[in-house]
Every structure is written in C-alpha cells, then in structure tokens.
Amino acid sequence: MQKSEIIEQVNKIFVDVLDNDAIVINETTSAADVDEWDSLTHIQLVVAIEKHFKLKFTSAEIRDWKNVGEMSDTILQRLN
C-alpha cells in the first residue's frame, strides 16, 4: 500500500469519527488544524484506525506522532 492510499483511508476515518464531511487531511495536518480533533477524539481516532488496518499501535508510537504523515509512516511500516 502506498502512503497516499493510507492517508486517503485515514481521511475517511476522520470524516466518520469526527462526523464532519468537510475534513481533508494531508501529511502535515496536525490536531491544531482540525477543530474536532482534540485529546478525547484522538483516542477514538486511534482505536478506529487500529481496527480499520487490523493492527495495534504501542503507547510510545501514539505519543510521538506530530502529524498525519508520521502516523501514516507507522501504519506503512506495520503493513509491510
């Protein structure tokens, strides 16, 4: 899977979990850029992404992400 493809799928999860069709994310998107993305919905996003890609992140990984790009890198690593 390509990184762009991952971001596309993650985007769909954001739209669903945050319940906002207008959300468009890219590699540099961070929590500051999306209104509904706060510490609480972050947990929901992580759980939904884990479920979607059938993987589990470690606590350290979750803590270290700065933006969508870094999150997608972790997903990419795990899938390959």
């Binding site: 510490s39 947990i43 759980v47 606590s59 979750i62 803590r63």
Partner: peptide, 8 residues
C-alpha cells in the same frame, strides 16, 4: 483497554 487506562 490497558493502553487507554494508562494513557488517558
């Protein structure tokens, strides 16, 4: 969910 318990 232990991760949620310790993390949040």
């Amino acid at each position: 969910d232990a991760k949620m318990f310790y993390g949040a």
